[in-house]
Nucleic acid binder design. Structure first.
Lengths: 347, 347
DNA sequence: CTGTTAGCGCCTTCAG
DNA sequence: CTGAAGGCGCTAACAG
């Protein structure tokens, strides 16, 4: 009675049920051209034999694997794990499974992962974060497997991508402070060499100042690596300035929390002395004191929408546009003062 | 020059290189029985044609897919995403890819995911969290695919599993407070119906009290769902007791942070008035103020070790024992007082 | 060292 | 509504 070992195939089912393989295949695939009686009989045998269709064989024959590849910088990063959740939920909905790969943003590894995924015959590919390089483009060019970028994009929009308007988000956060009457608004951002996140956000901040006739002060800029420690460090140096800023836009929630602690450790009050706005709205933003005001990025939706878009490509459906920008908003909590709570400001 | 569409196969390579499929297969698979000259020629053609081996066909022929299935409660949960990181890193090391599936701890879904993964012919299976049910056991019995449980286990150790000693971890945390001179030690735990986490930890707490002749007080027990809000709630009710506890063991870091905030909101000081110990040591533990003292669970290693163990099973290697218990420790930070900082206590 | 020959388990026309 | 037959792309003996 040890059912281990023996692989039972569609052929076995056919034999026992007294029909052909084709018929079994039809009932397994829900093809309607099968007489109810036959179907019932086959289903019975399948149950009885404990038959389990071999997806690999099926994939070879049908050229569809019902699995999509997901290349992600780091699954242990709260932002990406939330996006991945969105991806997986929609994938499940459309009966796809995902092969997850961490790239750690290493160029070589990214390329190699894409190759591996393609070898595994994924029906589609989701590429998150990271920069899309020439090399990738060349690979994509030579394949029919659809690709959708998430939380990143490529110049001239050569590839479908879903994300938010990074420039505008940083702009909005900065304008919020300007409207609050601030003049000395610091920025703790990411590497400006990063054309997808770091740079556009930086420009958004800068534009906000310019448009409101506030002088841009280089001394108020700090570049971190998006993590807690760098946020703490950056804020500490900002605090040691003769002219301490009264507000700071921090381009990641983790850095923002680090900044908050640096401020608190410095004996200053938030938001009374210094106001802080973070970026992304990951869970920790609502689990620290003071509650972190931040740019609310629809992480889950980013993944969900991207996966949905990918299914359209995989199914050959018409797609209006491959470039989708999801809305963001400012989630104001207690690391900022309510607008209007200070000496009169407009709008 | 549009290489799209045309699928180039091992046969094409063989033809162009003027050798047989077998030879091409050999060089692709690094078989040494190939004359260097031939190998070089074949490699050249592969490059020239842009040949990419079809892993699905290979899987069908070799009965190995080089992919393992991972059933996880929720990838957006910090604990599991960290474990998954460990899994993926080791999987990469052994050239495996992982198919990731969220179960949300739903019994039916778990079963269905295992089935799907088996259909996809994964070489191995990792089942995280969640309870292993009769149904699962029955499936495992009828397959040769090795399974390793992570952060969960099954009665009588019928399946290989890697985790920590839950009972002891809770015991240790409790004892720490006892040694600190506490008598009123509260517990914020998880459902006692959970025989893998909730119950054993609860018992560990209880044993610690018993062994140190401290009366168990039911009023000091709260059951949460491991999340921030429930920790806040639970602590709030504890704070409203006439006899407020002086310390609290919280069985998840998120609940612990919630508890911390409830205490702070109540105007009490940590650790002066109340000491708090969390559980797991996820990133947030070191990103809140006061820094959370907690049970350090080697999350990454849990995943890494489990994956490593799985490779042994998949490769038919000898395995000493399938039951591995990784060490935990108390990570003392600032939500607890240093031992000995209060009226003398022994060791 | 290299080629031949069977399949792996299933889908998919094409007949009937 | 059902069966027969030919692959899908590759691996794995087995010869030579």
């Amino acid at each position: 009675m040890d059912k281990k070992k023996e692989t039972i195939t569609i052929y076995d089912v056919a034999r026992v049920a007294g029909v052909s393989m084709a018929t079994v295949s039809r009932v397994v695939n829900g093809n309607s051209n099968v007489k109810p009686a036959t179907r019932k009989k086959v289903l019975g045998v399948i149950e009885q034999l404990g038959y389990r269709p071999n997806a690999v064989a099926r994939g070879l024959a049908s050229k569809k694997t019902k699995t999509v590849g997901v290349v992600i910088p780091d699954i242990s990063n709260a932002f990406y794990s939330e996006v991945t959740r969105g991806i997986e939920d929609i994938a499940t909905m459309y009966r796809y499974n995902i092969i997850l790969c961490n790239s750690d943003l290493q160029q070589e590894r990214e390329t190699q992962l894409i190759e591996t995924l393609l070898e595994k015959q994924v029906d589609g590919l989701l590429f998150l974060g990271g920069n899309v390089r020439e090399e990738h483009l060349r690979i994509y060019e030579h394949t029919n497997v659809p690709v959708v970028l998430v939380a990143t994009k490529v110049e001239d929009n050569a590839l479908p991508a879903v994300g938010i308007d990074q420039h505008e988000a940083a702009y909005d956060a900065t304008v919020h402070f300007i409207q609050g009457g601030h003049k000395k608004i610091a920025l703790i951002g990411g590497p400006l060499t990063d054309l997808v996140k770091g740079y556009p956000r930086y420009i958004g901040y800068k534009h906000a100042l310019e448009e409101h006739q506030i002088e841009f002060d280089e001394h108020l800029i700090r570049i971190g690596d998006y993590r807690y420690d760098s946020g703490y460090q950056a804020m500490s140096t900002l605090l040691s300035l003769t002219d301490v800023p009264t507000s700071v836009v921090v381009l990641s929630d983790e850095m923002a929390v680090g900044a908050i602690h640096a401020i608190l450790d410095n004996g200053k009050k938030i938001p009374e002395d210094i106001e802080v706005i973070g970026y992304n709205n990951i869970p920790i933003a609502s689990q620290v004191r003071p509650l972190l005001s931040t740019v609310d990025v629809p992480m889950y939706d980013l993944g969900a929408v991207a996966m949905r878009l990918l299914t359209k490509y995989m199914h050959g459906e018409e797609v209006q546009t491959g470039q989708v920008t999801l809305p963001h908003s400012l989630k104001l909590r207690s690391s900022t003062r309510p607008l209007g709570s200070i000496e009169g400001e407009q709008s």
